[in-house]
């Protein structure tokens, strides 16, 4: 059980990063971006190419995040912005198209086979309570924690961070208060997609790289976002850990194949009991 909790925290760290980015774009742009998982995939594969150039790990990480942020902003400019006034469901449909587009571009550029950042076999550290944890996994938890602290500082201390929170809370009011919403939208895409890239790289480190990897984790991401309340980054962080833990702990009782279904079950429970999320204030009823 202790081991499962540790595994849950590792999975949870990855989900937290993905879900925080997703909830920011969801809250500020007011639509469920189904391409978020595939932006994770794009970031992970970009890092694979950069790692092939023998760049240091930190540099690879930062460039891949910047690249994915640019891709997200581009996607918004050519596709989402012209559709924005047509409502959230049209945006949702177009994001599914964008998701398939990105996934298949990745498949064409990098091929359909599984890829790894490193072929080395890692020796797990032995921890108290018989817990085994690999160096990479410690790194995953460390990087996720560091990025979350950075996001926290950005949201609380910078003007743009405050503007983003204000826009997520009430877009009209923010605009009246003189906030430049176009710039907020751009920053939201930038940060959301950079976090997606980070999540994608960590997922690639923990498992492997596949063109389908980001899509397969999308359901847990949405479960975490809704659990935490849409547009609430701190909720998404808590939601991510809860989903990660419930997915891993469920393997003690049911087949590991059903991990994605577990996050779906949690999602349905939340929708039945408290649809605005455990940290959501006002209900978002229709």
């Amino acid at each position: 059980m202790e081991q499962l909790i540790v595994n849950g925290i590792i999975t949870g760290s990855i989900i937290v990063l993905g879900a925080t980015g997703l909830t920011l774009t969801y809250g500020i742009l007011r639509f469920a971006n189904f391409a978020h998982g595939d932006l994770m995939t794009l970031g992970a594969y970009a890092a694979l190419t950069l790692a092939g150039m023998n760049l240091p790990f930190g540099v690879v990480f930062v460039i891949a995040m910047a690249f994915t942020a640019a891709a997200g902003i581009l996607l918004d400019t050519v596709l989402y912005r012209p559709l924005r006034k047509r409502g959230s469901i049209v945006l949702l449909i177009s994001s599914i198209g964008a998701a398939l587009l990105l996934r298949n571009l990745v498949l064409i550029i990098w091929g359909p086979r599984m890829r790894y950042y490193s072929q080395d076999i890692q020796i797990a550290y032995m921890m108290p309570f018989g817990i085994r944890i690999k160096p990479d996994e410690l790194l995953i938890i460390g990087i996720a924690a560091a990025l979350i602290v950075l996001v926290h500082i950005f949201l609380k201390k910078t003007r743009m961070g405050k503007a983003m929170r204000a826009t997520a809370d009430n877009a009209e009011l923010a605009q009246i208060a003189g906030i430049d919403t176009d710039r907020v939208v751009m920053w939201t895409w930038g940060i959301g997609c950079a976090l997606a890239a980070a999540a994608g790289i960590l997922l690639g480190m923990e498992v492997q790289l596949r063109p389908q990897m980001g899509w397969d984790i999308l359901l847990p991401l949405f479960a975490a976002v809704i659990l935490g309340g849409i547009g609430r980054p701190y909720g998404a962080m808590a939601g991510g850990i809860i989903i990660g833990l419930s997915q891993e702990i469920s393997t003690a009782f049911i087949s590991t194949a059903y991990k994605p279904a577990v996050s779906f079950a949690v999602l349905i429970l939340v929708l039945l009991i408290r649809p605005s999320g455990i940290f959501g204030g006002e209900g978002r009823w229709s």
Partner: peptide, 17 residues
């Protein structure tokens, strides 16, 4: 009873399950 995107996410979830 909820906004449309919840149905979208739930239908993806049921299809996957």
């Amino acid at each position: 009873r909820l906004k449309g995107d919840y149905l979208a996410i739930a239908t993806i979830g049921i299809a996957e399950t």
